[in-house]
Write a protein that binds this DNA or RNA. Structure first.
Lengths: 219, 219
DNA sequence: CTACACATCAGGGTTTTCCCTGATAATAAG
DNA sequence: CTTATTATCAGGGAAAACCCTGATGTGTAG
């Protein structure tokens, strides 16, 4: 028999990691080598030994799973990464692939799919849950080759723009932001417009949510 | 040996439900009788047969776990409810207890804690994860008995106002909200003003954050 | 019956935001 | 040296949001 496939899980929800471990307990072709609850711990761990596959939750306390996948694909390209997410929005999926991940699983996938996904990426394939593969992947590939996918995880915003986002997310008015940053209202307007264009969002509510996701403001 | 404790799980993440099922597979004092991925299915199921404990995720596609707990405590008070959440903010915890839930577990709790929690609520206790019990519960009790703290979880908002909050948090304009709710812009203005006064907030950013905390909109 | 909360709406004015078309300077990259 | 990016700013008008005062009908609890 072959050496079992080793798996690292990066997820801060013990119930999820324990659950996966329990599910794979009887499976001797797949073993959970280690679990990490945040990015920092994971990177410490991977220096010591590398798994075949890393199953990474997208939402982590210290950094985004996408960011981890990106770094991982550069530093340990032989480690296949699978992104695990509660959501299934196109932006996250495309961001996941752009980051170098080999697959995208939602937490509401059937348990068999997890095993299938792991075996699939080990075999060198890219795996997406069910209908997702066809529905999104083709369209995505077209976009990818043309470099026109806006990738939130990469945060194309400049430092100044991030400051502005943060202050908007704190609820400040244009005038107040202008005073705080010692610039004119017009400049704040320009920044806001640029931010909205870059993030492809249309209202302040989305801006606030973006700021929260990026840890620019607290909930 | 006693009849095993029966458990219903309400969570739309199959990985979580399957995980818990797998974890409890070898435990014969506790069995997962059924899993539901949304509130509607759950209420259909509970009409047929009632479990001892319902483990309810706070974020569900059709309604809040808090709302389910509230209804459940009124219609089937003998069913003990445990709220399962990814977050651990005070507002959610207090909301959980006010809704009639007997305990609050975060998804990053150790697996033993789940069993402990279930056994604890069956024994008639109220269970909170670790430090949470002392850190929050006492303060909460004080608030409850004195009714003098503006308690966000109490959500003094009317149903109509919650609808308005939700739509604002989705980024809709006054006009769009008016159209959606089939009322005039002036009425939307009134609702917004009342909401802001009640919540003691001064800007839309805070409103969005409130909506997110209350699960009225997604991040 | 009488409050009280709730949801509805109006007029009218002020403030803020949004949108458009511009411009300038500094700095970095090619 | 040219080009791109970033950060800065202006004018002017349209749209939206905000603020204040006030009103009506419908329930519901005492």
């Amino acid at each position: 028999m072959n050496r079992p496939i080793t798996l690292y899980i990066i997820d801060d929800h013990t119930l999820v990691t324990d659950g996966i471990k329990a599910m794979l307990a009887g499976n001797n072709s797949l073993t959970v080598a280690a679990c990490f609850s945040n990015g920092a711990d994971f990177f410490r761990g991977i220096k010591i030994s590398q798994p075949d596959v890393a199953l990474i939750d997208i939402q982590l306390p210290d950094m985004s799973g996408i960011e981890i996948a990106r770094i991982l694909s550069e530093t340990y390209p032989q480690v296949k990464t699978l992104i695990l997410s509660a959501l299934e929005d196109e932006a996250s999926v495309t961001a996941a692939i752009k980051s170098g991940a080999r697959g995208y699983l939602t937490k509401d996938c059937p348990k068999d799919e997890l095993i299938k996904a792991v075996e699939s990426v080990i075999a060198g394939n890219i795996y997406f849950g069910e209908g997702l593969s066809e529905r999104m992947f083709k369209g995505y590939l077209q976009k990818l080759t043309r470099q026109e996918v806006p990738d939130e995880s990469k945060a194309i915003l400049t430092d100044r723009e991030k400051e502005v986002v943060q202050l908007f997310a704190e609820g400040l008015l244009y005038k107040q932001i202008a005073d705080r940053l010692q610039i004119s209202i017009k400049t704040v307007e320009t920044h806001k417009a640029n931010i909205m264009r870059k993030l492809e969002i249309k209202n302040t509510a989305e801006l606030v949510k973006y700021a929260i996701r990026q840890n620019l403001t607290s909930l």
